[in-house]
Design a protein around this nucleic acid. Structure first.
Lengths: 225, 225
DNA sequence: GAACCCGTGACAGTTGTGTGACAAATCGCC
DNA sequence: GGCGATTTGTCACACAACTGTCACGGGTTC
């Protein structure tokens, strides 16, 4: 299911956009302000973001720049302003497409598909590739190198490692890992422990004394930088 | 220098677009018909293609499909028709963007930049020719050499191989392959498995132990660099 | 010492992948 | 335009790999 985040302050437009997109088969998240949208995208990233330009507080341009700072997500502007200057500014800020209200839903949907088709040819997983000493994570190639040798990881191990390596130096709670790796909203947190254990068997020189994937008691796990 | 191919039958529009794009710093090739444009793109590929919808002979839609057959080049439609139906059809055919005439050059330029920014993150080599050890893929010539000997591949096998070889070192999911090789938006992913199996019979020395086309369990397939 | 946190081995159920068979669709040739 | 050959997509089966649960035990905190 493709998730779309709609950032739009006008309640009526937000609602009608949401309904239309849901009809097209998208999962829709919404936010009424840029702040809310940015927060939401950071917590639970959507696959595509629709954003209005005229927003209270942080405006659309700034919002796009903020999103682009650490996210390569496709961004589509939906705005009432049809001035060329606005269009150019939004695209320069990092937007991928720009539609003028009122939008035809069929067109919006087609443009989303075209954009996603193009975006998908990019990196498959969020983090590109990470080097942590002897351990190299090549997300695109779907491979992990330890001392230059490719490692045979299962999908779950791979995704777990990507998640941890992508936030090297930062503690991730079992709950966060469950949500991001397993996409579970709930579940047995011990599951994480088991897979961390299995992962350690493969990436640690001495699995009983983990160096690369350490546990932070009471908080979770992290990979030191 | 970024090269743009403009396919447009109206002399005046073609000329003014060319001049405007040259002003923006693009190298511009032109073609007055789809046939001419396709030939030109095959001989000397541009980095982006602008195409009109109403062309004599092969029309714009068909032209887009032909281009897409063996090229991942960004395609922008510039048309006088502003009907949603046309827009959707063009995007579905494979276009990346759609502008309604008359176009503001600044906007066109900004959209080209946005599109190229997005497209560049994609495949490193569009559709040239790839050498992977003993296996040489000549996409343009439509032939594949194994140990210097030409291989007899079916069309599907050939396109599958081109797609994989064109992204050597990168995992492609079954879904991605379905979309790019079969142009299915959905469908049975097992179809990919079957054709990978058939392809292996032809390109692997020992099909039971694939070396050139390996499966990455849970993720998809890839050809190692 | 009690409560809690974490590592780990075992195991059954689930999922992913390769492959042969087959019918429908397409192609090439006359 | 017809007909055999080739290609394509679907299906089902078999096997291997992976996943999640559980229980046990050692360590840590208070």
């Amino acid at each position: 299911m493709v998730a779309v985040l709609v950032i739009e302050d006008d309640d009526r437009i937000r609602l009608s956009l949401s309904l239309a997109l849901e009809d097209e088969g998208y999962a829709v998240y919404t936010a009424a302000t840029a702040e809310e949208g940015l927060l939401r995208q950071r917590r639970e990233p959507a696959d595509t973001v629709l954003v209005d330009l005229m927003l209270p507080g942080i405006d659309g341009f700034q919002c796009i720049r903020e999103l682009r700072r650490d996210d390569d997500v496709p961004i589509v502007v939906v705005s009432a302003r049809e001035d060329t200057h606005d269009i150019v500014a939004a695209l320069e800020a990092g937007a991928d497409d720009y539609l003028v209200k009122p939008v035809a839903v069929k067109e919006l949907s087609a443009r989303l598909r075209a954009l996603r088709r193009r975006a998908r040819t990019g990196p498959a997983t969020p983090a590109g590739h990470q080097d942590l000493g002897d351990l190299k994570v090549r997300a695109q190639a779907g491979e992990v190198l330890l001392h230059g040798q490719p490692l045979a990881l299962t999908r779950t191990e791979f995704r777990l490692l990507c998640e941890l390596a992508g936030h090297a130096g930062q503690v991730l709670s079992r709950q966060q890992l469950l949500e991001r790796v397993w996409e579970y909203d709930f579940g047995d947190e011990r599951l994480v422990d088991v897979h961390v254990g299995r992962l350690r068997q493969k990436i640690e020189d001495d699995p009983a004394n983990p160096q690369r994937l350490v546990t932070v008691r009471g908080l979770g796990y992290k990979m030191p930088r």
